[in-house]
Amino acid sequence: MVTVIIITFIFGLLAGIGGVCNIIGNMLRKRNNFGDSHADPHTYTQLVTFTDCSERMYPSDKSTMEYIGNHPPRKASFPTAPRGDAPVESPRTRR
């Protein structure tokens, strides 16, 4: 009986703490936090296209790595920007 009371109290306390965290967190997010969002993904015309889907794969590290190995990500075939530590400078000249 005492055990049940203790367990009930612990559950009640944890639910109380969880609930107040949620309520106060929500209030602070709405009242003290402005502009906490990035642009919508479609703003910059970003499109996600899935080229391969594999469902219910065999759950093993080997098959996971095999899937990644058989479908390697591809680099775009366009001229790309330089990489490295040098500062970015536009090669354009003044009009």
Binding site: Q46, V48, F50, D52, C53, M57, P59
Partner: peptide, 13 residues
């Protein structure tokens, strides 16, 4: 269950 996804994304501007 384990699912595989392969795809791409194009960011303009």
């Amino acid at each position: 269950i384990y699912s595989g996804r392969r795809g791409n994304l194009h960011m303009k501007k």
